[in-house]
Amino acid sequence: MPVSEMLFWFLTALALFSALMVVFSSNPVHSVLWLIMVFFAISGHYILMNAQFLAIVNLIVYAGAIMVLFLFVIMLMNMNTESEPQKSQWMKMAAAISGGALMLIMIAALKDNVGAVSKTSGEGSIGLIKNLGNVLFTEYVVPFEISSILFLSAMVGAVVLGKKESSKIVS
C-alpha cells in the first residue's frame, strides 16, 4: 500500500472518528476540539489532493478563526460542563434511523461511480495558490466582488444584533 493511500485511510478514519466524537461528546468544548480535529483531517485530504490553497484556507479560516469564535462563544456562555440535557430516546432513534437510511441510499445510489482522483501532484497544479488566485481575480472576480456584499451584510447584521438597545424582554 502506497504511502498516500495509507495516509488517505488514516485521515479518513480520523475524520470520521472525530466527526462522531463531535456529535457524541457531551461537553461542548470537546465537541469544538473534535471538530477542529476533523478540519485538520480534511485539510490533510486537501493536501493529498494537491489542493494546498484550500488546505491552508481551511486551517486558517475554519480551524483557526471560526472554531475559535465558537470556542469563544461557548466559553462566554460558560458551557464547558456536561450540562446539556439529552433529547428524547425516540428522537435519537429516529435520527439514527433516518441518518442511516439516508447514508445507505446515497451510497447505494452512488456506489457504481467510475472515476478516479489522482494522487500524484505532478499533473495538477490547479490547487496551488498562484493558480487559484489568478483565476479568482480574473474569471471569478464578479462572484468575488459580489460575495463582498455578503460580508458587508454579515457585518452590518452582526452589528445590528450585537447592539444593545433596550433591556425589556418581551416574551
Binding site: 428522537m91 441518518g99 439516508l102 441510499i105 445510489a109
Partner: peptide, 17 residues
C-alpha cells in the same frame, strides 16, 4: 426544529427512493 428537520429528512429519503 428537530422534528421539522426530521420530517424534512424523511421526505428527502422518500424522494430519493
Amino acid at each position: 426544529v428537530g422534528s421539522y428537520i426530521l420530517i424534512m429528512m424523511i421526505s428527502i429519503i422518500l424522494f430519493f427512493i
